[in-house]
């Protein structure tokens, strides 16, 4: 027969792991703090790179686009331009976006279609639409490896290891139905590297709550002292379609003129 003292010890022993877990959870940074750390990570004032976009459908048919991408910060405003170099039938297609820091200001976007030789203004609320046949949305393209803090409520779920790297697991829920519909997601879970504050993996659920797609970020290396992902792959679980972006010749030191980020530059091409 155990004494009251023994029961007390057993009870305390059982409580210890729970308390440790609680302490651990409390010691994890808050979701918003992790998102903020992602967005303050240095990504260079300017970057120039080639991006190979490989798209594969369920049957294994592959389409490959070669592009040149330039991105430059104008204060806190981020401008990105992408020129398509091949294949020849879509060559010279180009996309320009102005990503503003103000949460209540829509971004501005333009698309140059060589078949019409005209620049078309694109509605910024198309951000949940898929970008030119890829599995990345216009919003994904604009944000690159950054996140839209104001679009989600953020919650840290714990820690996990991805490819041998310790990561925070964060859940993101759109702030309202309108935002969820615009983004095309009802929930996102992201695994963020605790050392370099870069998303290494993310899972997305569609607005109906079904698993939608998985993003994997690979080949992260330091270039000119800036952590740089060289491969982004997305697999859409509903369609079986997959997109892999491979980055080459990444250069944060290249001089890029401001006028490269204009409607006229879209028209002139690269």
């Amino acid at each position: 027969m155990r004494s009251h003292m023994q029961n007390l010890f057993i009870g305390l022993f059982l409580l210890i792991p729970l308390s440790a877990a609680d302490v651990a959870a409390e010691s994890l940074p808050a979701g918003e703090e992790i998102a903020r750390r992602i967005n303050v990570r240095d990504e260079g004032e300017v970057v120039s790179r080639f991006i190979t976009m490989a798209m594969t459908d369920r049957s294994g048919t592959e389409r490959v686009r070669e592009t040149k991408s330039l991105r430059k910060y104008f204060g806190k405003e981020k401008r990105t331009i992408i020129f398509y170099l091949s294949p020849s039938n879509i060559k010279d297609t180009a996309f320009l976006t102005y990503d503003y820091p103000e949460a209540d200001r829509d971004d501005d976007q333009w698309l140059y279609l060589p078949a019409a030789r005209k620049v078309r203004r694109i509605s910024a609320s198309d951000r949940g639409d898929y970008f030119l046949g890829t599995d990345f949305t216009y919003e994904d393209i604009r944000k690159e490896t950054k996140v839209g803090i104001e679009d989600y409520s953020w919650k840290t779920l714990g820690e996990e290891t991805i490819d041998g790297h310790r990561c925070f697991l964060v859940e993101e829920i759109p702030v309202n139905d309108k935002t969820a519909k615009e983004l095309g997601y009802s929930k996102v879970q992201s695994w963020i590297d605790t050392e370099i504050w870069m998303v290494r993996q993310a899972k997305y659920w569609d607005v109906a709550g079904n698993p939608l797609k998985t993003l994997q970020v690979r080949e992260i290396t330091l270039i000119q002292n800036i952590w740089t992902a060289h491969q982004l792959s997305v697999e859409n679980h509903k369609t079986g379609h997959k997109t892999v972006f491979t980055f080459k010749d990444v250069n944060y030191g290249q001089s890029v003129k401001d006028e490269m980020f204009t409607e006229d530059a879209l028209r002139r091409g690269y």
């Binding site: 490959v64 040149k68 170099l85 091949s86 020849s88």
Partner: peptide
Amino acid sequence: LAESTQDDTKSSQLSKHRFSAV
């Protein structure tokens, strides 16, 4: 000759000469 030079473009390095056709 475009097919023989296509690989240059696919390497994503812009070569001085680029041929393509539709």
